[in-house]
Nucleic acid binder design. Structure first.
Length: 447
RNA sequence: UCCUCGCUAGCUCAACGGCAGAGCGGGCGGCUGUUAACCGCUAGGUUCGAGGUUCAAAUCCUCGGCGAGGAGCCA
């Protein structure tokens, strides 16, 4: 048997005999000719069988081979512009084929459009389709690029607990579970507070894991279980944080462009838009952003759209505001200096402006909205304790957190980036449920 | 939680008060360059559920279920 290759590297084997192991994605038979598009996990390649090249019984079997049958195919690779596939442009002339299993004939994911509910009920099969496969391959590369950038920049991976005690941040709704004799434990909504402890030991750290939110958010930008990467940096202020964020995001985009071009193209993504992602990213203050939104509100003539843009200083931005803001830029845009009242208790106040804090969100272009939320953390122990009281949080639960400000407190900053939102932006897809293999949403825990 | 929309063949949809239909997918047959091929034949239905109006309901009404889009909520 010729050497087993991966379809993503097929161009290297032009003119050579190879073997691919995979599944029949589609079949078109045309008399004495059968076209099989075979996917092997790394790509999709067309295999062409001529009746004269194969034993009659085997060829006959091929003409009725059901979609998703598993096969091992050997033959010569040849360049052919007509050949579909990912990356495409090459095909295999079938010399030998072993049918590992003939798939059942009632495969539900016919090669056509499907409704959302049906597709999600069949997510375990949907991920085999080129679009979903491409998105999840890109997700894998984004994860790899994230870890790579941290490795290259002196960060250490220090994962934080997923089971956490009550009221760590006191804001969002958490999933709860019984925890032996200790009462309730909650699924983590952030590793940040633990990361603040970690940096005082390790300087620069990041955690990267699943995050849970029990809010009944029903939008294209929310999952109940999603992945968040959270770096935290000692001796870093808000400006330093923004520099890190733009370097980090740029690195991720460049890696995806380098390694996942065929996948992006198969999704119909406009690569020119991603090519423009380079530091520096525009930075605007919350005050400026509020003014811009007010102006857009005044100019809007459609009464429904106008209502959605309604805004006054002190509010957090909703999805329509974010979209209106980011549509003005080709790059992700930093919005910094949010009102203290809409942000978490631990953010450093703006000097001489206590109503504003040193927070920064990064909003992705093309209407995607927030992909990163971050801030400079409060380093003054007295003020921090006051904020904990103001927010009605139990002081005892924060004893360890307050300790961090007593024993060598330093200016420090960090952020959290939502993986699925980032993948959705890079892929140019509408809904983040497609950016994770098995999405968890309010109405769905199956499959 | 609110607003809007939807639920008919495996899938995507049509029929909108008068015989339950099409395309795709499946099966059988044909075709040596297909790209979600094409051509012929064929199988496939508790029209989401319950109740009501009517000579007659997939269609109209009421209630319920499920889902989607948006808003809100949400480091």
């Amino acid at each position: 048997m010729p050497p087993i290759i991966r379809v993503e590297e097929i161009a290297k084997y032009s003119g050579q005999e190879v073997t691919v192991q995979g599944w029949v994605y589609s079949r078109t038979d045309k008399g004495k000719l059968v076209f099989l598009v075979v996917r092997d996990g790394s790509g999709f390649v067309q295999c062409v069988a001529f009746k004269g090249d194969l034993p009659e019984a085997l060829f006959d079997q091929l003409t009725r081979l059901p979609q998703e049958s598993s096969v091992i195919i050997s033959g010569a690779v040849r360049e052919d512009k007509r050949a579909p596939g990912i990356p495409g442009g090459y095909e295999i002339g079938v010399k030998e084929i072993k049918i590992v299993q003939t798939a059942a004939e009632d495969y539900p994911m016919a090669l056509k459009e499907h409704g959302v509910d049906f597709a999600l009920d069949n997510r375990h099969l949907w991920i085999r389709m080129p679009s979903q496969w491409a998105i999840l391959r890109i997700r894998g590369t984004v994860i790899s690029a994230i870890r790579e950038w941290f490795e290259l920049n002196g960060f250490i991976n220090m994962d934080t607990p997923i089971l956490t005690p009550a009221a760590v941040e006191g804001t969002s709704t958490l999933f709860e579970t019984e925890y032996f004799d200790e009462g309730k434990a909650y699924l983590s909504q952030s590793g940040q507070l633990y990361n603040e402890a970690n940096i005082m030991a390790f300087g620069k750290v990041y955690c990267f894991g699943p995050t849970f939110r029990a809010e009944k958010s029903k939008t294209r930008r929310h999952l109940t279980e999603f992945w968040m990467v959270e770096p935290e940096i000692a001796f870093c202020d808000l400006d330093g944080l923004m520099e890190i964020e733009e370097q980090f995001v740029t690195h991720i985009v460049k890696r995806v462009l380098r390694d996942r071009g065929p996948e992006l193209k198969s999704l119909g993504r406009d690569l020119a838009k991603l090519d423009k992602i380079e530091p520096p990213f525009p930075r605007i203050s919350y005050d400026e952003a509020a003014k811009v939104i007010q102006e857009l509100y005044e100019k809007e003539t459609d009464p429904d759209k106008k209502e959605l843009l309604k805004f006054e200083w002190g509010m957090d931005f909703g999805a329509p505001h974010e979209a209106a803001l980011t549509n003005r830029y080709e790059k992700p845009v930093f919005v910094y200096g949010y009102p203290t009242q809409v942000k978490a208790f631990y953010m450093e106040p703006w000097p001489d402006r206590p109503e504003v804090c040193k927070s920064v969100d990064l909003l992705a272009p093309e209407g995607c909205g927030e992909i990163i939320g971050g801030s400079e953390r409060m380093s003054n122990p007295e003020l921090l304790l006051q904020r904990i009281h103001e927010h009605g949080l139990p002081e005892a639960a924060y004893k360890w957190y307050l300790d961090l400000r007593r024993y060598g407190s330093v200016p420090h900053s960090g952020f959290g980036m939502g993986l699925e939102r980032t993948v959705a932006w890079i892929c140019g897809i509408e809904h983040i449920r497609e950016a994770i293999a098995f999405p968890r949403m309010i109405k769905r825990v199956y499959p």
